[in-house]
């Protein structure tokens, strides 16, 4: 982990400057994290382990970590899954269920343990095999692993993490700028209310 680039950043502290509709959506995201309803305990643990390898947050105390898995569970619990579906893929809910079982299959073949039982190095070995597109396991012969990795797993995990003010603080994005807008447009300058970057 390299050093914190924006130590002064605190997008959430700017909430008084946001419009009501935006504030409602973001505070709901931060403070009303859904309970798990869809996945069983083992699938939930696998999902949480996956999220922790895609976006490592060990450097944060547990209470400061951005919750990711609960939102995926909620999405899979929804009865209404539309959007784009590749013709070689099952629907998103089924793809998540299959993919999590696929991680276990590959883990058992590669390392003789389930995915959650592996250490970080072992888990990364499994994920690297999935990313490469030809992981061991029966499930991955039915569902293209590369497609699952980019369009299901990374799509959801990145989308959830970078929707959170804690992630914005990490990358120096100041959060909603309505209604006040931006006035500092040149030389990549921050607004007076945005955090300065420190070298690191």
């Amino acid at each position: 982990m390299t050093g914190d680039r924006y130590p002064e950043a605190d997008a959430l502290a700017q909430r008084g400057h946001w419009d009501d509709a935006t504030r409602r959506v973001i505070l709901d995201r931060v403070y009303n994290v859904p309970d798990f309803r869809h996945f069983d305990d083992h699938a939930r643990a696998t999902l949480e382990a996956l999220c922790a390898r895609v976006i490592p947050q060990d450097h944060r105390p547990p209470a400061r970590r951005v919750p990711i898995a609960p939102w995926i569970d909620e999405r899979c619990d929804s009865t209404d899954i539309g959007g784009t579906r590749f013709d070689d893929m099952p629907d998103e809910r089924m793809a998540w269920g299959l993919g999590l079982r696929g991680l276990d299959e590959t883990a058992l073949i590669l390392r003789s343990a389930s995915f959650v039982e592996l250490d970080a190095t072992g888990q990364d070995a499994v994920l690297l095999a999935v990313r490469a597109g030809q992981p061991a396991g029966r499930i991955w012969r039915e569902m293209p692993a590369g497609r699952w990795w980019i369009h299901i797993a990374l799509q959801a995990i990145c989308g959830i993490y970078y929707s959170h003010p804690t992630a914005w603080d990490e990358i120096g994005f100041g959060g909603p700028a309505y209604p006040r807008g931006y006035t500092a447009l040149n030389f990549g300058a921050p607004e007076p209310w945005e955090a300065e970057e420190v070298s690191g």
């Binding site: 390898r53 992630a167 990358i171 994005f173």
Partner: peptide
């Protein structure tokens, strides 16, 4: 993924 992804995103403003 992992540190590679997070590190690349920390360059967002660049």
């Amino acid at each position: 993924f992992g540190e590679d992804l997070v590190r690349a995103m920390r360059e967002y403003n660049h």
